[in-house]
Write a protein that binds this DNA or RNA. Structure first.
Lengths: 245, 245
DNA sequence: TCATTAATGTGTAAAATTTACACATTTAAT
DNA sequence: ATTAAATGTGTAAATTTTACACATTAATGA
C-alpha cells in the first residue's frame, strides 16, 4: 500500500470577514455628472448651471450630485436628470470615470460622467436658480472643475455613438422632418451631408414611420413628418451593426 | 434722468469653503480592476487569480487593488499591472465604472475596470501565489464578485475597439506572421476571415514592417515575419478612421 | 394673383470597396 | 521522393458609396 505524500502547497490566506476588509479600505467621495445634450436652432447644446463654489464664481458646471449610499451609479444619474429636467424615459449612458486627485478644489472627488440626450422642448427646467441653461457645445468656455474635459469626452463619445446607433432621435421632437434629422447629424458630426444620400441611408434602415403629416408654419414648401420606430429598433438592437455617414 | 430699477435676482448662495463641502460628502471605497488580456494557443486569455475572500473560495478574481490617496485612476491600474506582470509600456484603457451597491460582499465598493493587452510571452508573472494564471475567455466560470460581468463588458469593448484601431498588435510578439495576426483577429471576433482579403486589408493599412525574416521551427512552409509600425500608427492616430472586418 | 423665394423630393451613373474564390509554392516530416 | 500543411498571390463580381440636377410645392410679398 502506497503512502500518499502531501504535496507542498501554499495554503492561501483566506479573508473570513469581508466587511472588515472593506472597512479597512480608504474611501473617497463619489459623484456623478450628467452631460445633458439637447438640440436647438441647429446647434448641439448642453445643460449647464452656474457653479455654487466661490472659487468657480461665474463659471459653469455640469449637473451632478453625490451618489447616495446604496444607490446605483445609473440611478444617481437618472435622479439628477429627473430633478433637473423633470423628464422620465430619457436616454442615459455612462461615459467615463474621472478621478484626477485635484480635479475638485475641495479635495479628492471621483466622478462618473453620464451622457444624456433629450428633446429640449419636451422638458421644463425645474430649478431656475443659478442660471440653469442651455449652452452651445461648440463655444464652451469658463467651466468649473474638469468639466470642460468631461464635456469634450462626452461629445466625442456621442459623435462616435451616433454613427453606430440612431441615438439622434432622442434629441428630436416626436415628429420631425428629414431636414431636421439631417441638420442634427450635421451639427453633431460637424460635416455637411448630401441630402439624397442621407435620405437613402435612413430609408434603407427602415426605422422611420411616415405619419402622413406635413410641417406647419415653415416659410417654404413643408416637408413630410416622421416618427422614429423605437420599438423596431429595440428589437433589432441585438444584431445592429452601424450606420456610418 | 432715469432711475435704475434693481432687477430681482436670486442672489446665489456661494460656497466659500470647498474643502468643508467635500468633507460633508459621503465616501465609498474605490478600487480598480484590470482585465488583462493575452493571446496564446490561438485563444484570447485573461489573467485571473484565486479570490482571497472566503466567501469566494475557489472562485477567480480579476487583478485589482484599492486606489490610493492622491493616485490617478490610470496610475492605479498601471501599478497593479506592473506589480503583477512586471511589464511596462503596456496598453491600458478605461472601460467602465461598476458600482452596484452589493457587488462586494464586504459592503459597497466602486470599481473602475481597465482593459489591458499584453504579449503573454513577454512577461513573467511576479507573484505565483493564489494560482495567478491565464484563463480562456470563452470558457470562464466561477468568478468572484461581478467580475464575470466586468470581463464580459471588457471583452465586448475589445471586440469593438479592435475593429477601429489596430490594438491587436499589443497581444502579439514583436515579430509575428500574418497567420498569427489573422488567428488573433479570428479568435477575438469569433469569425473566420478570408486569408487573402485579410492580408489585403492589412497591406492597405501600410503599418506592417517587413523584416525579411521567416518563421522558424514550424512544421510546414514558414511564413514571413513582420513588425508593427507603432510609430507610424501613433502619427496617424489623430486622423484614424477604422479598420473593419 | 402672380412672380419670387426657399425649401422638398427624387434616380442614376461612376467610383470605391468588399467579397468570393483556386492554384502553384515552400518547407518539414516520413 | 513523396506527402502533408501551410504560405503567397490576383481578379472578377457584387455591393456600397458617392456625386450630382431638376421639377415640385407652399408661403411670401409685390
Amino acid at each position: 500500500m502506497k503512502k500518499k505524500i502531501a504535496p507542498i502547497v501554499h495554503e492561501p490566506h483566506l479573508v473570513k470577514d469581508a466587511v472588515k476588509l472593506v472597512k479597512s479600505y480608504p474611501t473617497v467621495p463619489l459623484t456623478i455628472d450628467c452631460v445633458i445634450f439637447g438640440f436647438e436652432e441647429n446647434e448641439l447644446k448642453v445643460l449647464l448651471i452656474k457653479s455654487d463654489l466661490e472659487v468657480y464664481k461665474d463659471k459653469y458646471s455640469l449637473l451632478g450630485d453625490i451618489v447616495k449610499d446604496n444607490e446605483e451609479l445609473d440611478d444617481a444619474a437618472y435622479r439628477v436628470l429627473k430633478e433637473r429636467t423633470g423628464m422620465n424615459d430619457v436616454f442615459l449612458d455612462q461615459v467615463k470615470a474621472f478621478g484626477h486627485p485635484h480635479r475638485h478644489p475641495g479635495g479628492r472627488v471621483i466622478t462618473v460622467a453620464y451622457c444624456s440626450l433629450l428633446n429640449i422642448n419636451h422638458h421644463e427646467l425645474k430649478i431656475h436658480d443659478n442660471e440653469l441653461n442651455w449652452h452651445s457645445v461648440s463655444a464652451l468656455q469658463g467651466m468649473a472643475f474638469d468639466h470642460k474635459e468631461i464635456v469634450d469626452a462626452s461629445y466625442q463619445w456621442l459623435q462616435k455613438r451616433i454613427q453606430e446607433h440612431p441615438l439622434g432621435f432622442n434629441l428630436l421632437p416626436e415628429k420631425f422632418s428629414l431636414r431636421e434629422l439631417q441638420n442634427l447629424y450635421e451639427a453633431i458630426l460637424g460635416v455637411r451631408l448630401d441630402r439624397r444620400n442621407f435620405r437613402k441611408k435612413f430609408a434603407s434602415m427602415d426605422l422611420l414611420i411616415d405619419i402622413d403629416e406635413m410641417e406647419q408654419d415653415v416659410p417654404h414648401r413643408p416637408g413630410k413628418l416622421y416618427k422614429f420606430n423605437f420599438e423596431k429598433y429595440e428589437k433589432r438592437k441585438r444584431t445592429w451593426i452601424g450606420i456610418d455617414f
